[in-house]
Design a binder for these strands. Sequence first.
DNA 1: ATGATAATGTAATTCAAAATCATTTGACCT
DNA 2: AGGTCAAATGATTTTGAATTACATTATCAT
Lengths: 141, 141
Amino acid sequence: MYREKQIFKDYILNNELKYTGQRDQILDSFLSIEKHITIEELYNLIKKKNPEISYATVYRTMKLLSECGIAKESKFHGGITRYEHAYDHGHHDHLVCIKCGSIKEFENDQIEVIQRKIAEENNFKVEDHKLEIYGICSRCQ
Amino acid sequence: MYREKQIFKDYILNNELKYTGQRDQILDSFLSIEKHITIEELYNLIKKKNPEISYATVYRTMKLLSECGIAKESKFHGGITRYEHAYDHGHHDHLVCIKCGSIKEFENDQIEVIQRKIAEENNFKVEDHKLEIYGICSRCQ
DNA sequence: ATGATAATGTAATTCAAAATCATTTGACCT
DNA sequence: AGGTCAAATGATTTTGAATTACATTATCAT
């Protein structure tokens, strides 16, 4: 079983919620996809297995998964919300193709260090940060 | 006269548009404010001088100012669009306070260099990039 | 099985932003 | 200066993502 599933179950338990079939399906579908997925894409994916699912439930469940650190919301160019896997994923940033919309992750320690330095210089207490590079990916050139 | 005003007039001329009183007022008000301003804030500011102004005109004019490089749209945490001065402003990034909402600009050449390196490694053609650091500003701690 | 309580689906609502459209205004021409 | 015509404007409606309200259904501890 996915480690994430146990985390979700614990979260459910600790908050007096219920572990339902839909929540389980949504988590499974989310984990099965290795991309930054939109609610719409996720909804359509789940609908294949369970045509009864509603948009509202997908929205609500992804909020829960974000709260317990399994998913992370992010908005790129255009502004619609996408979800990426967050459990056991170190901090990373994104290369976003403005042509095909593909999103590639990358990690860079130097940038993290510089960011901390800038924050310190400004007496700023960092909670989170994001770096996005927009351009044309190799395939689209 | 602001250098920006000439740019705007040229842009208007080249696109067979018209340089109207409202557009002039909106540009003046925008330039007079040294912050990342929302449409609502700008609308309220202009309304004091000209109560006839409408939201639609402010929206439309800010689009024009963005098109000709005088303003730049940006969305921070929360997602509502803000406009900042763009003419003759080098690239910079932002420290965003999640408590009071204040936004502070900073420049860092090292980050620019690293970003270019990362893009190169990924055979990615950079068009734009943004770095936002979210946290608590010095005043709010 | 029962009852308390949460989850769900449908539909309505919110909010920023954009679009529609009738009317007004500005730029250009002679 | 006045006429012409396209563009600008304001009021209103529409859009689209996201959230919420509410009636109904499902879950789970007992």
